[in-house]
């Protein structure tokens, strides 16, 4: 069972962990606010110079529930895309245009990585040259009637 499914299963039986961040006075690292400021600085930089930034959320110590707080703070924007390559990935624009939340999962739905990307478009969404070349060759074959 994947970690997310295990958490869902725990939620389903109404288990409440005392000391979880939903309980007043529970453990927080205090990393959420500085992270949001880092995102703000990166967005300023993107506008001023075009420089893109990626923040790897695995590099930060986060208390249980703090990722949820980050997710809630960033909110939902206009675009959500799903990439199906080595498992599903969700690329979601947040309520702040140019700030994207990228979650890579493997084929068994386990999270491989979570990133905040500050860019006009996350690089992983752009069509890649080797894939386009293969697509061109496949299309040419199809048009020759050799492939249905």
């Amino acid at each position: 069972m994947s970690a997310s499914r295990a958490n869902d299963a725990l939620q389903a039986i109404g288990l409440r962990v005392e000391g979880s961040p939903r309980v007043a006075g529970a453990a927080f690292t205090g990393n959420v606010l500085p992270l949001l400021h880092e995102v703000r600085h990166a967005l300023e930089r993107l506008l001023a110079t075009g420089e893109e930034t990626t923040i790897d959320l695995a590099s930060l110590p986060l208390a249980p529930g703090e990722f949820d707080r980050i997710e809630a703070a960033l909110g939902q924007g206009e675009v959500t895309a799903t990439l199906n390559a080595l498992g599903p990935s969700e690329i979601r624009e947040t309520r702040y245009s140019g700030v994207w939340l990228v979650t890579h999962r493997n084929a068994t739905d386990e999270v491989m990585g979570r990133y905040i990307e500050i860019a006009r478009m996350p690089a992983v969404l752009l069509a890649q040259e080797p894939d386009m070349r293969k697509g061109l060759a496949d299309l040419a074959l199809a048009l020759e009637g050799r492939v249905d």
């Binding site: 990626t54 790897d56 590099s59």
Partner: peptide, 25 residues
């Protein structure tokens, strides 16, 4: 059959694995 996008995703996870900054991808 792993696409280039899949490969880039693999590289992003590998960078994280090696504790390298995403700029190294």
């Amino acid at each position: 059959g792993v696409s280039r996008r899949g490969f880039m995703k693999f590289c992003a996870s590998t960078a994280s694995l090696m504790a390298l900054p995403p700029a190294m991808i």
